[in-house]
């Protein structure tokens, strides 16, 4: 397992080294311009920014994240199921098909409920 993942680890180090190295290099080579108050402000379309920068975030994003976790776990269950379903096709195929069908039915019902409860609406 470690043997198999060693290249990934090395590549990870290489990528981090490449990224930080280039950022450090360009900090050295880049032009230096004296910073002014106006320049250092957060970007705004030509007018001075008004409200503080920490804006409130719509709760919709949180809801989306929660629904994502729910359905992503479902897909995580589906992946190993496909292999087992394929391997044990002649003997256990129908049993596996029905049990996964029941599991998905519960989740599709959940999706349907979410839909009807207007949890998927953006307005």
């Amino acid at each position: 397992m470690i043997q198999q993942l060693l290249p990934v680890l090395i590549l990870f180090v290489v990528v981090i080294a490449f990224g930080t190295g280039m950022i450090l290099l360009t900090t050295l080579t880049g032009f230096k311009v004296r910073a002014t108050q106006a320049k250092e402000n957060p970007y705004e379309c030509g007018v001075a920014g008004q409200a503080p920068n920490s804006t409130q975030i719509p709760v919709k994003f949180y809801l989306t994240a929660i629904s994502f976790i729910l359905f992503d776990i479902e897909i995580v269950f589906l992946y190993p199921w496909t292999l087992i379903y394929r391997e044990t096709m002649p003997e256990a195929g129908l049993y596996l098909l029905l049990s996964m069908g029941f599991f998905l039915f519960v989740l599709v019902f959940g999706l349907f409920y979410e839909w009807k409860a207007k949890a998927l609406e953006w307005d």
């Binding site: 950022i23 290099l25 360009t26 032009f31 230096k32 920068n53």
Partner: peptide, 28 residues
């Protein structure tokens, strides 16, 4: 390479510099 490396006053300097590297890692 010769562009000015500008960091806004409001930014968090370390994370501001780290974010591009973090964005590159998954694709690579």
């Amino acid at each position: 390479i010769f562009k000015e490396q500008f960091i806004p006053a409001n930014a968090k300097p370390f994370l501001f510099k780290a974010a591009p590297v973090i964005a590159l890692v998954p694709a690579a």
